[in-house]
């Protein structure tokens, strides 16, 4: 039995490898964007507008994935867009995770009125249409990176809180927690040393999934023109442009869409893959 299990452990699932590779590649591309991007993503050249990608008749050498209607290089804009997408994923994802998981732990382990207040708040949050609420928040806060992050944290903390609350509740009912309590440990210390390590795998999985969700939310916000300033390259903004001129310049929509698709898929597959590895029943 033992041998069989360690054998499975050694073999990494393909989807973990593939999704992690894509994300690492994207991260490198984002960090090195100023060095590897062939053009300034903001440089407009109306004479070079609406150029198709390199394999289509009428392309211009150097513009690998073509240009948009203002003559801006699609590839360079995708590379620079990755910077914003990954920044949002990391920062918004982490903050959402910390706030949401803390709420969940407090509600699930301390119970009592803390639980009542947090659970009621979760119920109220669940009654909001999330996309509309985030758009509303950006309108209130004004478009900026900080606003995007705040909007994501505000709408998504319940994702963590709900799941972690349930897990902390079931962990809290276990004997080892009771014995830690009998040993005279304080509630908070028990929560941090006994409960937290046991819900950490779940938190990691949720965090990975949340990063993908944060990227989508950012894309949606820039799609409705409410992300950061309208000139800065964002995947969502490019998609909005591409959607508007879909019958003339399909490539402006397709390439950012593929990038967004692969990135979101990778985060989600990474999360699911981690879930399988953490879950002793499934393993």
């Amino acid at each position: 039995m033992l041998d069989g299990r360690s054998q499975i452990k050694r073999k990494l699932p393909t989807r973990l490898v593939l999704s992690a590779s894509w994300l690492i590649l994207l991260a490198i591309a984002a960090i090195c964007a100023p060095r590897i991007a062939p053009f300034d993503p903001l440089a407009q050249d109306l004479f070079l507008g609406q150029l198709p990608p390199f394999w289509v008749q009428g392309h211009e050498p150097g513009y690998l994935l073509g240009t948009d209607s203002l003559g801006r290089d699609v590839l360079s804009r995708i590379l620079y867009g990755a910077r914003l997408a990954l920044t949002v994923a990391l920062i918004a994802g982490s903050i959402t995770c910390i706030i949401g998981a803390t709420m969940g732990l407090l509600a699930g382990f301390l119970r009592g009125w803390v639980d009542i207040v947090i659970s009621r708040a979760i119920d109220i949050w669940m009654a909001f249409p999330p996309v509309l609420f985030s758009i509303l928040l950006i309108a209130v806060l004004g478009p900026s990176l900080t606003s995007i992050i705040i909007a994501i944290v505000v709408i998504d903390w319940t994702r963590f809180a709900r799941v972690i609350r349930a897990e902390a509740m079931s962990q809290g009912a276990m004997d080892y927690v009771a014995s830690a309590q009998i040993a005279g440990r304080s509630r908070v210390s028990t929560m941090l040393t006994e409960i937290l390590p046991n819900v950490l795998p779940t938190i990691t999985v949720l965090l990975t999934l949340e990063m993908g969700i944060a990227i989508i939310v950012e894309a949606i916000l820039s799609f409705v023109n409410l992300s950061i300033s309208t000139d800065d390259p964002t995947w969502g903004g490019m998609i909005a442009e591409g959607r508007a001129s879909i019958h003339q310049t399909w490539w402006v929509l397709v390439f950012p869409l593929i990038t967004l698709f692969l990135t979101v898929l990778s985060f989600s597959q990474l999360g699911e893959g981690l879930k399988d590895r953490f879950d002793p029943v499934l393993r």
């Binding site: 993908g212 989508i216 894309a219 998609i239 879909i246 929509l253 869409l257 989600s268 699911e272």
Partner: peptide, 22 residues
């Protein structure tokens, strides 16, 4: 199912626009 679950409705919408609109 796994694929369909990983991709949110917004992206499916864009993919459908490309596939069956264009």
């Amino acid at each position: 199912n796994g694929m369909a679950l990983s991709i949110p409705d917004f992206l499916w919408g864009l993919i459908l626009i490309l596939a069956f609109g264009v």
